[in-house]
C-alpha cells in the first residue's frame, strides 16, 4: 500500500470520526444530509458483499467493518435517536435521492468489469458513491450557519477522493496491470463535484471568515 492510499483511507476515516463526534458528543446532526448518509450506507452494503467470502488483509476487513458500522449507525442516529433526530434539518434536505439509485444501477448493469452479481454491485457502489454527496452539497448551500465540524466533515470526504486519484496514478506506474477505469472515471467525477466546495472552504479558511456557500 502506498502513502497516497493510506492518507486517503485515513482522511476518509477522519471524516467519519468528525461526523460521529458531532452526532455522538454534541448530539447534533444540524447541517448533515440524511439522504447522503443513506446513500453511503447503501454504497458500503453493495460494495462489501464479499466481506466474509474474500479475505484480502486484516486492515481491509477492519476498515470495511468500520465503514459499514459507522454509516448504518449514523443513519440510525439521525432517524431514531430522540435528541439527535430533532436537530435534523428535514425541510432543507429535500434532494430526491431515490432518483440517483436507479440510474446508477442501470449504468452498473451496462458498464461493469464482469457481468456477475458481485461485479455489478461493485460498479453500482462506485457510481452511487460518486454522486452520493449531492444532497449534502445542496443542503450546505441552504444552510445559513455551517458549523466547523460539518465543513470539516465534507472537506475530509472530498480530500479522500483527491488522495485516491493520486494513489491510482502511482499504482498505474508501479503496478503494470492495475487499471480500474470504472473507479477512475467515477472518482474523478466525484472529486469534481467538490471543486466548488473546496474553493469556498479554502477561501473561508484563508480569510478567517465563516464558511458560507453562495445559493
Amino acid at each position: 500500500m502506498n502513502a497516497f492510499r493510506l492518507a486517503g483511507d485515513m482522511t476518509h476515516l477522519l471524516s467519519v470520526v468528525v461526523l460521529l463526534l458531532k452526532i455522538h458528543t454534541i448530539k447534533s446532526c444540524a447541517g448533515i444530509s440524511l439522504k447522503t448518509q443513506e446513500l453511503y450506507a447503501l454504497v458500503f452494503a453493495a460494495r462489501y458483499l464479499d466481506l466474509f467470502i474474500h479475505f484480502i488483509s486484516l486492515y481491509n476487513t477492519v476498515m470495511k467493518l468500520v465503514f459499514l458500522a459507522s454509516s448504518f449507525s449514523i443513519v440510525w442516529y439521525m432517524r431514531r435517536h430522540k435528541i439527535v433526530r430533532r436537530t435534523y434539518d428535514k425541510d432543507h434536505d429535500t434532494f430526491r435521492h431515490h432518483f440517483l439509485v436507479l440510474p446508477c444501477l442501470a449504468l452498473a448493469l451496462l458498464i461493469n468489469e464482469r457481468f456477475t452479481f458481485r461485479e455489478v454491485m461493485w460498479a453500482f457502489s462506485i457510481y452511487l458513491e460518486a454522486v452520493a454527496i449531492l444532497p449534502q452539497l445542496v443542503l450546505l448551500q441552504r444552510t445559513r450557519n455551517i458549523d466547523n465540524l460539518t465543513g470539516q466533515y465534507v472537506f475530509f470526504l472530498g480530500a479522500y477522493r483527491v488522495l485516491y486519484i493520486l494513489n491510482w496514478i502511482y499504482r498505474y506506474f508501479t503496478e503494470p496491470h492495475f487499471v480500474h477505469w470504472i473507479s477512475w472515471v467515477a472518482g474523478i467525477v466525484q472529486t469534481l463535484l467538490y471543486a466548488d466546495f473546496f474553493y469556498y472552504y479554502i477561501m473561508s479558511w484563508k480569510n478567517n471568515v465563516k464558511l458560507e456557500l453562495p445559493a
Binding site: 492510499r5 476518509h12 484480502i56 496491470h177
Partner: peptide, 10 residues
C-alpha cells in the same frame, strides 16, 4: 487474470 482484479481498495 491480473492480480489487480482483486479489489483491495475501500
Amino acid at each position: 487474470e491480473p492480480s489487480s482484479y482483486d479489489k483491495d481498495e475501500l
